[in-house]
Design a protein around this nucleic acid. Structure first.
Length: 888
DNA sequence: ACATTCACG
DNA sequence: ACGTACGTGAATGTG
């Protein structure tokens, strides 16, 4: 037995509390009965418990900043100047952090004239020298300079729930600097949030470069005379005093007069009574129950636990009609792999909040009672993932009808985050955290499977029913409140079943064609490979960007255009700039294209052809941030078309029956039309009403020329600008796309906005309103929350601003084609057509149909798509058909 | 598990 | 001073 290692956790209270405040944006729902905001306390509490659970320290301290002035303000009176005043919603929570800490039995401490950092630095060194293991938790990256052997620094990432660990090794790897050099780096860079300057135009990248060359700030200045004349050199010379001052400010004190001994900060026992009264004051009812189950107090009210009454069905004789009598029962069919087109169901649960039934497929699927209940559309059911359920059951030759609600779709509409796989994840979004994750029950990776203890699994799925029913109520109330019922009930919910139909229908793919291509491509690839090795002088792995980078930029000494964080970039755009410099470039470009086609499509798709000769993709309905679908296993939304060689792959996609055709219809310019509609821009609307070429018309305006003066280059640039507008334009993005300078790009953008002032004001307004509401929305009220609009970091904020501009456009277009798909499904039935809808590729729908139905489809499909919704301008659709997808 | 690259809209 | 066009999925190499 080893004696217990002493472990000290030091919390940077000031930075963590502030982070905690911003981690939860939803201020309105975190207010206690006295009107006090509690969001920061709540997030801080969550962070503390998770760290204490994980680290289980013997000693701990939360350090606070003690006042506005410190020894640093004496050195530099602008230190931390210019900061925005602390929000009052945060200030009012300040006094209660220590109340919480007293309840936890964790010490807290502040020291006049010093910052929390300095207290932490001092105690960390003291403890490390005493043989402690030390962990520092902060929201401020500056503290990583404290990393040492036995001192780990954990910095919060996004909110306060995730931590990123820094040890001297990690720092060396990430920055290629020692911890001491981190201080030099800060000195050179300065710190905008602490308001000290550093050296002009020197940021992290430059600072690291300088330090790698000269070791320290002192080293930089000792060698400054040898530096080649440059702007950077001038800045370094001019800002020398600032740099050294900044370094002093950045250095955390390790010898602050902290009058605490390590014994003073031993973790004490939880003061249950104090904590209970704190939770009560803050309305943190959830934690009250945790506290009770952790301790042995029995005189407190019964904690709310997810217990569930359930019966396991063993034989068909156990089934009774009464088990299917109730309306609005939950139904859950469990399968352990994501791809429901392949596996088989392992266990099934259904029931009400009062009682749940659990059974196995081999029994249930033989039962007429069960099968009829599934099929009966009058018996309405609540599920998690209707499409998945529908397909799984259909593959067992069972009909599933009567979907009243799908809590997966509901949760996605309420907050389009990626939480599609596990009900427990969705439940946690709604503060139901008593349901274990699937991973806990079934394991993960190679170990995933049915648990030895079957009862565990039975109870798990029974609990899922309870959770599904609870979520149903919560989600519907919220959807109603958000005015999203129409989107939910009249679009997404019925669409799930239409998508199920498309997926189950599948698309026929001729393996022989792919095999023939595979051989052809293999020979070509081999030839190119040999040519490349010839020029390089040796063989290497052409698929490795690292090895390729070495060959191009070190051995052949081609100019480095761009670097990635791991080395040289060898991306296509880089290679294109190197064309003509060496014959190897063209070979590599050809190789890249061919090997992509070969691995992903020609060879890759063959693995997905089922025994029925078809590929059954999965359309993910609850994944994207904008409301688009995505397609996976395999992705049929990115089958090549732009290059002729790739496009040929489409020849392998054929109709199921002889004498049938592939029929395809696509919206033309749907996103720009949506923009014309929602921005109300009169000129743009006029172009679409007149049926003119939008890119050419844009060129006329921007270049101020007549229609026949528009050159193909002008049109190309205008087209790029139009795309840029849809994406939330930036001069940089446009310059990359058109391969021009940023200045030139900016001139284009200015000219565009001058000519389309309503687009300009729409873009400004939409960002502003998203900021106020906290989300961007589509024409049909689909939401995308954008908390980063309030981010301090320019890049993070700019990204969110582009999202705010793009989401209503891309999202509304997605809404429209979804309405069209619903209507199309109806229309095919109404018209008694044999045609099948097979795929959706964002702005196009793909069908297979008997040749005799083609004339009808040529009328019907455009009609439905064009009038799926009515906008201020017409939507137009173009159709084509052929013997395969290449010809369609 | 993560980064890079590239296929599509 | 910073470093980005919007939205996806899959293959590959590498740690």
């Amino acid at each position: 037995m080893t004696t217990k290692q002493k472990k000290l956790v030091l919390f940077d209270g000031s930075s963590l509390a502030f982070r905690a405040f911003f981690a939860i944006q939803n201020l309105e729902s975190f207010v206690n009965k006295n009107g006090l905001h509690t969001n920061a306390l709540y997030a801080f509490h969550a962070m503390m418990t998770s760290v204490l659970d994980k680290e289980n320290p013997t000693h701990a301290l939360v350090a606070w900043d003690a006042g506005k002035t410190t020894f640093r303000t004496e050195m530099y009176d602008e230190y931390k100047g210019g900061r925005q005043s602390t929000p009052s919603e945060f200030k009012e929570q300040m006094p209660f952090f220590n109340v919480l800490l007293d309840g936890f039995g964790i010490s807290h401490y502040g020291l006049v004239n010093y910052e929390a950092d300095d207290i932490i630095g001092t105690l960390a060194m003291k403890a490390a020298n005493d043989g402690f293991e030390v962990v520092i938790i902060s929201g401020d990256r500056d503290l990583i300079q404290l990393a040492r052997p036995n001192v780990r620094v954990d910095i919060t990432k996004r909110g306060v729930s995730q931590l990123e660990s820094y040890t001297p090794e990690v720092i060396r790897e990430k920055y290629e600097l020692t911890t001491e050099q981190i201080i030099d780096m800060k000195g050179l860079m300065g710190d905008s949030s602490d308001n000290y300057p550093g050296v002009t135009k020197v940021g992290e990248k430059t600072a690291i470069k300088l330090l790698k060359e000269y070791e320290s700030m002192e080293g930089v200045y000792e060698n400054i005379d040898q530096m080649k004349p440059s702007k950077r050199k001038e800045h370094l010379i001019n800002d020398k005093d600032q740099a050294f001052l900044s370094k002093k400010l950045a250095r955390i004190a390790l010898d602050a007069p902290v009058d605490l001994s390590l014994d003073d900060i031993i973790v004490k026992e939880t003061d249950v009574e104090a904590l209970m009264s704190f939770y009560k004051d803050m309305n943190f009812n959830r934690f009250m129950s945790d506290l009770v189950s952790d301790t042995d107090i029995t005189d407190l009210p019964e904690p709310e636990q997810l217990t569930v009454d359930y019966t396991v069905i063993h034989t068909t004789d156990d089934l009774e009609e009464s088990m299917f009598a109730e309306d609005n029962q939950g139904l859950y069919v469990e399968m352990l792999i994501p791809n429901y087109h392949e596996g088989t169901p392992v266990i099934v649960a259904w029931g009400t909040a009062e009682h749940v039934y659990v059974g196995y497929p081999d029994v249930l699927f033989q039962s007429d009672l069960f099968v009829q209940w599934l099929k009966n559309s009058e018996k309405e059911k609540v599920v998690f993932d209707a499409k998945r359920t529908k397909v799984m059951l259909a593959r067992q030759h069972l009909t599933f009808s009567g979907v009243r609600d799908d809590v997966l779709i509901g949760s996605y509409l309420l907050n389009a985050k990626d939480h599609s796989k596990d009900l427990a994840e969705v439940a946690r979004e709604f503060d139901i955290d008593e349901l274990p994750f699937d991973e806990t029950i079934y394991g993960k990776g190679a170990k995933r499977g049915i648990p030895e203890d079957k009862q565990r699994m039975e109870e798990h799925v029974a609990r899922k029913i309870t959770v599904i029913l609870r979520l149903q109520a919560m989600e519907k109330a919220q959807l109603e409140k958000n005015e999203m019922m129409n989107l939910y009930e009249n679009l997404e919910l019925p669409l799930a079943l239409v998508l199920a139909k498309c997926e189950m229908q599948g698309i026929t793919v001729e393996r022989e064609q792919l095999q023939a291509m595979e051989k052809e491509f293999a020979i070509k690839l081999q030839e190119i490979e040999n040519d490349v090795y010839q020029i390089a002088g040796h063989a290497f792995n052409l698929n490795s960007p690292k090895q390729l980078g070495k060959v191009l930029f070190e051995e052949l000494e081609l100019p480095v255009i761009k670097k990635t964080k791991t080395g040289y970039s060898t991306a296509q755009s880089v290679l294109e700039k190197l064309q003509g410099k060496s014959p190897i470039i063209d070979y590599i470009l050809d190789y890249r294209q061919l090997s992509k086609l070969q691995s992903t499509y020609v060879a890759g798709l063959q693995d997905f052809i089922h025994e029925d000769g078809k590929i059954h993709t999965r359309f993910q309905q609850t994944l994207t941030a904008t409301g688009r679908l995505s397609s996976a296993d395999p992705n049929l939304q990115n089958i090549p078309i732009r290059s002729e060689e790739g496009r040929k792959i489409r020849k392998a996609f054929v109709p199921e029956h002889k004498g049938w055709k592939i029929f395809s219809s696509d919206y033309s310019q749907i996103e720009l039309r949506v923009l014309a509609h929602i921005s109300g821009d009169k000129h743009m609307q006029e172009v679409f009403r007149a049926g003119d070429d939008i890119h050419a018309s844009t060129a006329m305006k921007v270049y101020n020329v007549s229609r026949d003066e528009v050159t193909s280059n002008m049109r190309r640039s205008a087209k790029a600008v139009n795309f840029g507008i849809v994406y939330g334009i930036s001069d940089y993005g446009l310059s990359q796309n058109l391969n021009i300078s940023r200045k030139e790009a900016q001139v284009f953008i200015d000219a565009y906005f001058e000519n389309f002032p309503q687009i300009k004001s729409y873009m400004d307004d939409i960002v502003q309103s998203a900021k106020e509401k906290g989300y961007a929305e589509t024409l049909f009220k689909r939401r995308r929350y954008l908390p980063d609009l309030k981010a301090k970091n320019y890049n993070v904020r700019s990204f969110a601003e582009r999202n705010a501009m793009n989401t209503p456009i891309q999202g509304t277009a997605a809404d429209i084609i979804k309405f069209a798909m619903l209507e199309m499904d109806q229309a095919l039935q109404r018209e008694n057509l044999e045609a099948n809808m097979l795929l959706q590729v964002h702005d196009e729908l793909i069908f297979e149909a008997p040749e005799s139905e083609i004339p009808k489809l040529e009328k019907l499909v455009p009609e439905v798509m064009e009038h799926a919704v009515e906008l201020a301008i017409p939507l137009t659709v173009e159709s084509s058909y052929g013997d395969n997808w290449y010809e369609a």
